[in-house]
């Protein structure tokens, strides 16, 4: 589904990603962990289409297409969804209006008919119910004055509605209390299916108790230095990141 080969990325002439390779098959959940500043968010942002990053080398292909050639909206239409760490507040646009516009834009791009207002409302309510979201929420301006947990829940609602093939969660768990964390992980678990993959970028292992990954990768200094299964995350939780840094410094091969 997603194939990243030797991806190198700079920000303002500083090398952030120094050759990342990653292969994600349909239905897989990959967790990307690593200390602060390791390049986790850069990876997520480059995949989502942020323009302030300069790709200096490598390829990314998504369902056979060259992902890096697609505009941000084309990526969304092709089936990539990014749950942001800091969703933007947009006063004056109600959540409902935004969701309708987004769903119809994506449907149109995928060759489907626009939904009629009644069908749209039904769909939005159904997904909101599935995620335990109060309908009143839909009439509020998008993310305006939302708590951290509400914003993340709103991201999950968007994800549920847009039905992506690949969802990227960028530190969605940071700063959430356990209740909010459960809501996010419940949403992801409900949406897990054979043709949908997830990249879960996180600093903390705790989230992975709820979203059990198939693979865990550790990013350090812009490289994947270690990969494993969910047990790697538990090891990191117990021992911290220092032993990884020491291994890298000692030149111990990562895999």
């Amino acid at each position: 589904m997603l194939s990243i080969k030797d991806l190198k990325v700079d920000i303002e002439d500083k090398a952030i990603l120094q050759g990342i390779s990653l292969d994600i098959k349909p239905g897989e959940v990959h967790a990307i962990m690593g200390p602060n500043g390791s390049g986790k968010s850069t990876l997520a942002n480059v995949l989502s289409g942020r323009e302030e990053y300069e790709v200096t080398g490598g390829d990314v292909s998504f369902l056979g297409e060259d992902l890096l050639e697609l505009e941000v909206d084309e990526r969304a239409q092709a089936g990539i969804f990014m749950a942001f760490q800091y969703p933007v507040e947009i006063p004056g646009v109600t959540t409902a209006t935004f969701l309708k516009s987004a769903v119809n834009a994506v449907r149109e791009a995928r060759g489907l008919e626009e939904l009629k207002p009644v069908e749209m409302l039904r769909l939005i309510r159904q997904k909101a119910d599935m995620l335990g979201i109060d309908h009143k929420f839909l009439q509020r301006s998008l993310n305006e004055g939302f708590s951290g947990g509400e914003k993340k829940r709103n991201e999950m609602l968007q994800m549920a509605l847009l039905e992506p093939k690949l969802a990227i969660l960028d530190e969605t768990d940071s700063g959430l209390d356990i209740d909010a964390l459960k809501i996010v992980s419940d949403a992801v678990n409900q949406l897990r299916q054979a043709d949908r993959s997830f990249i879960v970028v996180t600093h903390y292992q705790r989230l992975l108790n709820y979203i059990v990954p198939d693979y865990v990768h550790v990013l350090y200094n812009g490289r994947i230095v270690k990969s494993g299964d969910k047990n790697l995350a538990l090891e990191l939780e117990e021992k911290g990141y220092d032993w990884i840094k020491e291994e890298v410094a000692a030149g111990i091969p990562s895999l």
Binding site: D73, V88, I90, G92, S101
Partner: peptide, 30 residues
């Protein structure tokens, strides 16, 4: 227009034009 907002809307599939129109509309809607 706030470019972060434009990006956010586009990341949900709205075209650049749609995103900008929606934000302008919201600005006047107040």
């Amino acid at each position: 227009l706030d470019e972060n907002s434009v990006f956010y809307l586009r990341s949900r599939g709205l075209s650049d034009e749609q995103a900008r129109a929606l934000l302008q509309h919201a600005f006047l809607k107040e």
